[in-house]
């Protein structure tokens, strides 16, 4: 008891615990909002209730852990590197959302990921990414007759 009081709660475990409670509430609310039930057997809301219950129980487990051992302490992370890749992925998302095409998206993603891993030659990397994008685009559109998201660059090929 005195041990519990002395040690500060592990913040990360608390965050996970609370997130799990939020998930449980979301699933529960969605299940409660189901308008149809099965005429025979088990309805579509049963499984969500079970999952919501399990999530809540695990959330409770995390709260307990937060006041005991806590989660393992992660090592230092390089936020800038993560930021670069996140930027690349967001660029991919935007390229597809606004019709800039797959080739441009891969060019950016390739270049910034290389940057995240400490390379400085953005132009060289962008060129490689562009080449990769063109190759993939040709493979899909010409050989597989499948369409990847197309933008101005894709229409050149």
């Amino acid at each position: 008891m005195s041990l519990l009081a002395k040690r500060r709660a592990d913040k990360r475990a608390l965050v996970v615990g609370l997130t799990l409670f939020v998930f449980a509430a979301l699933v529960w609310r969605d299940a409660a909002a189901q308008t149809l039930s099965a005429t025979y057997g088990i309805g579509p809301a049963a499984m969500p209730y079970v999952v919501a219950g399990a999530l809540a129980a695990l959330g409770l487990g995390h709260i307990v852990v937060a006041f005991r051992d806590g989660l393992p302490v992660p090592e230092h992370a390089d936020g800038i590197a993560i930021g670069w890749i996140a930027f690349g992925l967001v660029a991919l998302l935007l390229c597809i959302a606004f019709g800039a095409g797959f080739i441009l998206a891969t060019t950016i993603l390739f270049a910034v990921t290389s940057r995240a891993f400490g390379r400085r030659a953005l132009l060289v990397d962008a060129t490689i990414g562009f080449g990769l994008g063109v190759a993939i685009h040709l493979l899909f559109s010409k050989l597989l007759t499948l369409s990847l998201p197309a933008g101005p660059l894709e229409h050149l090929f």
């Binding site: 270049a111 400490g118 990414g129 990769l132 369409s147 990847l148």
Partner: peptide, 24 residues
Amino acid sequence: PQPWLYAGILVFAAMGTVAAKPSV
């Protein structure tokens, strides 16, 4: 080299996802 390896992996991952379902 790892920068290119992981950049390539991400491009591949994006390609697979977009090819299966091209949606935002």
